[in-house]
Design a binder for these strands. Sequence first.
DNA 1: TTGAAAGCGGTACCAG
DNA 2: CTGGTACCGCTTTCAA
Lengths: 337, 337
Amino acid sequence: MVTIKDIAEETGLSPATVARALGDNGPARPETRRKVREAADRLGYVASSAARSMRRQSSNMVGLVVPDITNRFYSEMARIMAAACDARGLHFLLAVTDDDPNRELQQMRAMVAARVAAVALVPGPDTRLELNALAIRQPFTQLVRRSRELPTDWFGFDEEEGLRQATEHLLDLGHRHILLACSADRYSTGGARQKGFREAYARRGLAVDADLIRTGAPLVSSGRSAVADIPSHVTAIIAAGTMLTEGAADALSRSGRRIPGDISFVGFGLERWHTWWHGGMTRIVPPVDFLAAASAEHLLARIGQIGSDPLPEVVEKSYRSNLSVGQTTRSPASHTG
Amino acid sequence: MVTIKDIAEETGLSPATVARALGDNGPARPETRRKVREAADRLGYVASSAARSMRRQSSNMVGLVVPDITNRFYSEMARIMAAACDARGLHFLLAVTDDDPNRELQQMRAMVAARVAAVALVPGPDTRLELNALAIRQPFTQLVRRSRELPTDWFGFDEEEGLRQATEHLLDLGHRHILLACSADRYSTGGARQKGFREAYARRGLAVDADLIRTGAPLVSSGRSAVADIPSHVTAIIAAGTMLTEGAADALSRSGRRIPGDISFVGFGLERWHTWWHGGMTRIVPPVDFLAAASAEHLLARIGQIGSDPLPEVVEKSYRSNLSVGQTTRSPASHTG
DNA sequence: TTGAAAGCGGTACCAG
DNA sequence: CTGGTACCGCTTTCAA
């Protein structure tokens, strides 16, 4: 491995001078700089970021910890955060938890071990208490989901409002028996979405049929099973999650049900195929790009500010989702089934 | 920041003993271990991986450099590589290039600066020559695409065969004017796919209409524009890429064309929505999971073996895609238009 | 403008 | 089994 020492020997200078010449750290004669750069290029020198971080007591890495990188929701965040890091010469560290509390803890430990300059986490269910101690060690923010045990910055969506709006849309069309596929309470988003659903009924003075709220992990399989067995009086379905929408759409497409002929459908997410599924899906569209950009901005701004603000206030920011009405929702009176 | 020294003072032991007690590096009395662990936990000690990497002259990080993490193709690879790293206590470093040669170079430099134990790259178009010097510094493999300038390990698909099969399928149905949306020659996959397309015509003794080969960057927008203006004698379309398929499907869905009534369609990729698009898309399905698992396995196996094999041979492995015939291809005689 | 030297936080060797 | 110590590569005083 080529080190600064090798360049020093090669050029007959001291390591200190070489270091100054390479970075813009200290003074160095232009001639010296030129000579050093040339030697560095010739030898294929690449500075060790570990050594630098160690000496500087701060790394140039930023971490993102997500449940599932194949979920478009999170890969979009990764894309935006990676670009933001790039623009500032920071490295981007990605970790995947699969919503396993132990893996989540382990990944956060890895982030701290790497002494990341900042880290963002989409917390899973049943977050472990030890996370707290790890979260406070660098600028930290929770994304989308929110663990009550972590009193930290948070960027997410107004999930309750999103579901309320979607549910009201269906109620206003005349639906009275709506099946809700939703993530379970232990995912913070699941709780909020269920609340929004119930709230819509309450506002209309209607009673929710609790049997029609079907919860589980936010996976394609849950979406599929949620619509596997639909009571005959159900006239509409809300799939309140990206993966749940995929699973439900998959099962419904295979079942041969006509949409909205037999049943109305409201999905969730940003997938492009939504726009042509049965002529265009009615769906809840969370502004993921805003969220990602704002949280990345915020997190990176926090870097290096530790202590400058004596006790920076906890930032909590939520974005409103948009209900995009398409062709998959219709009054139940016009259902043919 | 809590260091080993702090724990040493806290327990009245030496840093050396503490280090041994924490890792499984050297001997230490069980009682000592217990005491040290307790103090470490109490103080919230997390070892600095930078310091360890530095001393050990090897890091525990593995890198993946992809053009676009929101492409399901690559996020699937990221998922599998991240899991493989996890299982071995390695950290996973992700970088995104956006198919920009300069960013690609910069990202690879960052990987080398971090002294990653191994790195996998999906090379973009016009890879810069400097990559070579960076690639040889650690176990390295190219994925999917392949830059001719980099004589390194490669894991990819038999793109030529995949396209040949798809094209023959259409020719055998009786199609003679097939529009091909494909990535450009400077993406290695683009060249191979075009070659397969032409080869199919050649085998049937038919002439390709070069005007019907439409190339560009592998983006949704390219897919859209490729089918924006379809000559009237065209009876079938092949979209030879994940993003191209998305773009073409989008444009076709909006155009109101009936499929396969007006025109037959062959797509590419693994998206779930393919299986219900117009009753199930005929598509080329590359075995991404095999590729990802095999390449991760291979790459991680290389770690630490440098020099053990005097000159390990270059490994080149390609996987055959599967042509999954659905409802979107049909004989042109039965077209209603 | 340059050089000498200390030190970041672990690890590993060697002596006890 | 434990302690002392040198050292990984880079940065940053401080002195020349």
